[in-house]
């Protein structure tokens, strides 16, 4: 009976990957920082930390959705840049905001359609879309500048009842992510599709009667929309447009998702793992900043972490 309850506990949970590893490291890191620095645990600093982590958390949730089905979205960084550039256009908010989400959904649709219907490898499709999207962002806004509508800024900065708006963002985004990934039939179908891909039985999910093509396209739309949400948040923080602001997010989000225990081959992963992965990444940057480490070296270290994490995951397929 002991093994039964063990299985009960770890059954569905073991599909969620090694999410507790980043949690553990985060906790240990936070304890060390609390002990060795004066104001790490202050509400002010924690709130700052959360708002630093917020964009990466949002993008990583979207990234995770496509990674669970065995795909990847390298256009998310470009979408963030485009979103800020669009929001900094000279137009009223009620035009800009819907336009942003419509355009980014369309980008996701292009990604998904190229992958599913036109048989293009996800990495190649999203990589080339990334160039196109960044190109448009640079045409709209060649250098950082401009200003976004006030309503965007007030959606992000400031407090309500003394609680920073970022906290509300966190709650809403996590609820949304939970609903999509763990709290709906759609989420389970994503895991089913990914499980089929990673175990070499690509048709399995389809044979269960799941409309895999539509679900995959929808996943890329989701990841594009989450990236747009992150772009919206960043635009509100910097209150201007910046065509280069999203550059590092494509790889950083993949790193965060991978650190969070999600298998890049698909089918295994969890929202909380992704959350802890993203927080760990930001904590690391924070720690490296406190240690006065050069920004360039920080980039190299993040690259090394990505390499380490992905090479620890096993995969059958060789190549792309």
């Amino acid at each position: 009976m002991a093994t039964q309850s063990f299985k009960t506990y770890f059954g569905r949970n073991s599909r969620q990957g090694l999410w507790y590893v980043p949690l553990l490291i985060t906790v240990v890191g936070a304890v060390i920082l609390t002990v060795y620095t004066d104001d790490f645990a202050s509400p002010q600093n924690l709130s700052n930390l959360l708002s630093q982590a917020m964009p990466l958390i949002i993008v990583a949730i979207g990234q995770m959705i496509v990674i669970v089905i065995g795909g990847m979205d390298l256009s998310v960084g470009a979408i963030i840049s485009l979103t800020t550039a669009l929001l900094a256009l000279d137009a009223p908010a009620f035009v800009l905001v819907p336009a942003v989400f419509a355009i980014t959904a369309l980008i996701g649709l292009v990604n998904g359609y190229s992958i599913v219907k036109l048989n293009v490898h996800p990495i190649i499709a999203t990589l080339s879309v990334q160039f196109i999207v960044v190109g448009f962002a640079r045409i709209l806004r060649p250098v950082a500048g401009g200003s976004v509508p006030d309503i965007v800024v007030s959606c992000v900065a400031g407090t309500v009842f003394g609680i920073p708006l970022t906290v509300f963002w966190a709650v809403i985004v996590l609820l949304l992510g939970w609903k999509l990934i763990h709290g709906s039939r759609y989420g389970l179908h994503l895991f089913a599709i990914g499980g089929g891909v990673s175990s070499g039985q690509e048709d399995a999910a389809h044979n269960f009667g799941i409309s895999d093509q539509r679900n995959v396209i929808l996943a890329y739309v989701c990841s594009a929309l989450f990236a747009a949400l992150a772009g919206f948040y960043i635009a509100g923080r910097i209150s201007s447009g910046d065509p280069g602001v999203g550059e590092t997010f494509a790889l950083d989000s993949v790193t965060a998702v991978a650190i969070g225990g999600t298998q890049l081959s698909g089918g295994i992963g969890s929202l909380h793992g992704t959350l802890f992965g993203a927080i760990l990444m930001v904590l690391l940057s924070n720690g490296m900043n406190l240690a006065n480490l050069s920004a360039f070296l920080q980039g190299a270290i993040k690259g090394a972490i990505l390499l380490l994490v992905v090479s620890l995951q096993s995969r059958k397929k060789m190549g792309l």
């Binding site: 390298l74 790889l251 050069s294 360039f296 190299a300 390499l307 992905v310």
Partner: peptide, 29 residues
Amino acid sequence: LVGRRRVSAVIATLAVTVILTGIIQFLAS
């Protein structure tokens, strides 16, 4: 990484570029 560890080639080679770039930019300040 690609042949033996079967890491996705895009991720592996992209990460190598990021690492090398970071190191060189650091050295060149």
